[in-house]
Each structure stands twice: as C-alpha cells, then as structure tokens.
Simulated assay, not measured.
Amino acid sequence: MQFGIFSVGQVSTDPATGRVQSEHDKIRMMVRLARRAEEVGLDVFATGEHHNPPFVPSSPTTLLGYVAAQTERLVLSTATTLITTNDPVKIAEDYATLQHLSDGRTDLMMGRGNTAPVYPWFGKDIRDGIDLAIENYHLLHRLWREDVVDWKGQHRTALQGFTATPRPLDGVPPFVWHGSIRSPEIAEQAAYYGDGFFHNNIFWPMEHVQRMIALYRRRYEHYGHGSADQAIVGLGGQVYMRPKAADAIREFRPYFDTSYVYANGPSLEETMKTTPLTVGTPEQVVERTLAFRDAVGDYQRQLFTLDLGLPEEAVMEQIDILGEEVVPVLRKEFAIGRPAHVPDAPTHASLLTAKNAKSDDDKEGATR
C-alpha cells in the first residue's frame, strides 16, 4: 500500500504571526515538502492544479519535473489534473515527458476541479463538464496507446494521422486515477477503463464515500477487470498531530478558522465528526485511518494533506510524525488480513512486468 502527502498549493497568511506567504515561498516550500516526504519513507507526493489565487500550482509538470531531479524513489503524482479544460494532446505530451524525466515515477489523477470560472478561462462551458471529462480522457487514452491517431469529437478540432511525442516510457502509459467526490459518471469511467478511482474525501462523510467506491468496485468487476475487491482505490485525508489531542486542537484551530477552504463553514469539532479530518494524537490518526478500510475494503493509496495554511516548520513536523509514528504502524496493520489476490498500487515497474508477460503469452499462443 502507498502512503504519501498532497498539497493544493494554497498561499496563506499565518494567523499566529500575520506573516503573508509569497507565491515564491509557497512554490519552494512544496519542493521541500516533497523532499522531506521521501526522506522519512513516504511513497507519494502529489500536487493539485489550480489557476486562481490563492493557489500556485498552475503548472504541475514543471513543479514535479523539478522535484523528480531532486528525489530518487518518490512517486510523483497530481491530486488533480484538469481533464476538462486542458487539451488532452498537451496532457499526453507533458506527462509522458515527466514520465521519462522521472524514470517512470509518474502517475496522475484526472479531475474536473472545484473552481467554476476555470471553464471560461480556457474557453470551455461548465455545462459540458462531464462530457468534456469523458471525451477528453477517451482521446488521451488512445494517444498513449496508439502510435497514430485519427480522431473526431465534439469539443476540439479533429486529428488526422497524429502521433503524440514523446511516446510513453517503455511503451507503458502513466497510471491514471480518476478523482471525483460527487459524480457517479466518473466512477463509471474509471471502472470502464480499469483505471484507479481516488476519492479525495476530506470534505465528505464516509457514507457518501462508501457509496461511490462501492459503485466503482461493482462496475470494475462488471467490465471484466477483476473481482470487485481487486479494484484500485485511493483515499484522501487531512491530519494535524501532537502528543496530546488538546494541544493539537488548540494549535490547529486558528488555521482552520482562517482557512480559505474551511472559513465560514461548520466548526472544527463538527468537521472532525462528519469528515475524515483528524486533529489529535498519532494514535488517533492511526485508528481513524484504519477505520477507512472497514468502510471501503482493502485499498491501495492513502494520501494526507498537511499544509492548508500552516507554516512550513509545522508541516515539516507533521511529515516527520507521519513517517516515524503513523505510517509504519499503518503499513503493518493494513497488511494484516489483506487477501493475496488484492493488488498493490500500480507502478511503472509493475505495469511494465504485466506488459512483458502479456507479450510473452501472445508470442507463445501464436506458436501453438
């Protein structure tokens, strides 16, 4: 099972000091967070994609390419790649390039984002959101698997004899997770292609998460990719930890109350009760996270967000606690009782092995 962190890249003002973070500081901070994640033994670093203040990660491949040069093992992902407003041709080429630069340590999560104005900014209509997600991904899927593509759709100009360059590393496209918190059509799409489904459930009650993942698992099996419990599932979460729960709540509350995403909403206590936000001890985070498996079954990827408004030194401390006190326990506990037929999260190495095995089987079948 993979464990890691993701950042939405929010520039913030520290309520304790009044210090206003600059865009430059936030971008450089995200790089340092990724490096620390690898140092403490985490598996994944993911960045969001936003095109509006107070967020900075408008160019995920640039950021992740820079991180790739400074890390050796970390899987580099997106927490959202806007499949609706980005050109699928450009996605195909940008992420294949990142895949080569990172020696295969690349995957991505397709999503529609949560900022309605982004559609007209890129010449799209939000009313076409689902259609764009489905059509654009269908084209992207082909661009990575066919050397020459002829294509015609409703939302971009047609392609004739087009080859996306560079081709995916070793002929293996980056693994794709489809991220959605509310749209069953996206769970259906993930199941249809046999891709992963990532439910970034930081704002949603577990009952809703259960319904969406159950739908994805049923449809994954329906399309013949394996049994429902072999479907590739990822979950998000948010944590803040201290040795004493009261200290964690006291320290985190000012950041929660002034957060861009939480301000003017339910209280900290209500949010902790109704969503996976866990503010408390490392032991409480372990207990809460293990309960996710009880709700959705064995899954493959768990990502935590830590930096919504917090200063860098506090986020670094949280990464250290994750790496030293939380993730080692979660690895051990999640392994207990995990059926042998439930796969790990796909990596470039595992996908390449599967591709080569299929090629060998095809050759053997042709000689019979």
Score class of each variant (00 low, 15 high):
3 F>M: 10
8 V>C: 04
25 D>N: 07
28 R>S: 07
29 M>P: 09
35 R>V: 15
37 A>M: 10
40 V>L: 04
46 A>H: 13
46 A>I: 12
47 T>D: 01
50 H>T: 03
54 P>I: 04
55 F>I: 09
58 S>T: 02
60 P>Y: 11
61 T>K: 07
63 L>C: 05
64 L>Y: 11
69 A>W: 12
75 V>D: 05
77 S>E: 03
79 A>K: 11
79 A>R: 10
80 T>L: 15
84 T>H: 09
87 D>P: 07
89 V>P: 05
90 K>F: 10
91 I>H: 11
96 A>F: 02
99 Q>A: 08
103 D>S: 15
106 T>V: 15
107 D>C: 10
111 G>K: 02
116 A>N: 15
117 P>A: 09
121 W>H: 15
128 D>G: 04
128 D>K: 07
136 N>V: 07
138 H>F: 02
143 L>C: 06
143 L>I: 11
147 D>H: 11
149 V>R: 04
153 G>R: 12
158 A>M: 06
160 Q>W: 07
162 F>W: 13
166 P>V: 06
169 L>C: 13
170 D>L: 06
174 P>C: 07
175 F>K: 09
177 W>V: 02
179 G>A: 08
181 I>G: 15
181 I>D: 13
184 P>R: 11
184 P>H: 03
185 E>G: 01
188 E>H: 11
189 Q>V: 01
203 F>P: 00
206 M>W: 08
209 V>L: 01
215 L>Y: 08
217 R>A: 04
221 E>A: 14
224 G>S: 00
227 S>K: 15
228 A>R: 10
231 A>L: 02
233 V>Q: 04
234 G>C: 01
234 G>N: 08
237 G>N: 12
239 V>I: 15
240 Y>M: 00
240 Y>K: 03
240 Y>T: 05
242 R>D: 10
243 P>W: 00
243 P>T: 09
247 D>N: 02
257 D>C: 00
258 T>D: 00
261 V>H: 00
266 P>R: 02
267 S>D: 01
268 L>I: 06
269 E>P: 02
275 T>F: 02
277 L>W: 04
283 E>K: 15
293 R>V: 14
303 L>H: 12
303 L>W: 12
308 L>S: 10
310 L>Q: 10
317 E>Q: 14
323 G>H: 09
327 V>W: 08
329 V>Y: 09
329 V>R: 15
331 R>W: 09
333 E>P: 01
335 A>N: 11
335 A>P: 11
337 G>A: 05
340 A>H: 12
348 H>E: 07
361 D>N: 08
362 D>I: 08
364 E>Y: 00
367 T>K: 12
